[in-house]
Amino acid sequence: MRTWFGRTGFYVLVAVIILYSLFPFYWVFKSSMESSVALNQPTTGMLPVQWTFVHYEAIFAVENFLRPLLNSMLVAGLTTIVSVILGSMAAYGLARMPIKGKALILGFVLLVSFFPQIAMVGPLYLVFRHLHWLNTYQSLVIPYLILALPITTWILTAFFGQIPVDIEEAAMVDGASIRQTILKVFAPIALPGIFTAAILGFLLSWNDFLFALSFIQSPNMDTVPLALVNFRNAYYVHYGQIYAGVVVASLPIALIVLFLQQRIESGLTAGSVKG
């Protein structure tokens, strides 16, 4: 009896967890299918009063939501590429090369991830203004390095440290240069780790709101979160379109998570310096 009770309790808990995680998505989906009129009336049920796709049509036909999607992908993608390249190089140096002050370097990288993003906004704004870089892609890619580069470096250092050194050693015994060893022997083995770091770097850049809010000035440069918050004209906030936009913006993220869940989990735990 007691175990039955315990097991039921356990599954109730599991159900609560899944509901808390996923039900808000259902609600936003339901609202995105509701007409504007219904959205302004008290809610009457768990299903839309009348199913409609107008908000989805509007975000692509009227608001050109494709543009922020592309902007976000481009900016997050570029940040990821730069972070992974710089991060892999640094990680290889830290994990494999006999350099001094490793703890110091890793400590510094970690320290940077502790720097408050909000404190960077002002100075970067002024510097970008001076360079006439506000409202450009680089005004996002560069600050996003603060978000993505520390964690990529940490993850990759941890991953590279786990790869057995024997293979590289054998290659070097065969007379391969450092460069050849890295590119031909090491890189293929390290690829899964690099991929993990890339996913996390991408998600972290994709998630930014503060930098985009501060450095982006015209609607055609909006990233996804910024565009969603700005779905409005001078007077009118388009709630239906916001809901539809949230659904559209969440889908790719949900897919990434579903397919790459284990990589993300291992990367997250490695990146936060698990001993």
């Binding site: 203004r129 001076h130 006439h132 506000l134 409202n135 809010l213 000035q217 015209s218 609607p219 055609n220 700005n230 409005r232 004209n233 001078a234």
Partner: peptide, 23 residues
């Protein structure tokens, strides 16, 4: 035509930035 943000605050900020830089 350069379209500014529909949000009044951010349009203001954009203009101040452009004007303040002496552009």
């Amino acid at each position: 035509i350069e379209t500014l943000s529909a949000s009044s605050n951010s349009a203001y900020q954009t203009l101040v930035t452009d004007l303040n830089s002496g552009s």
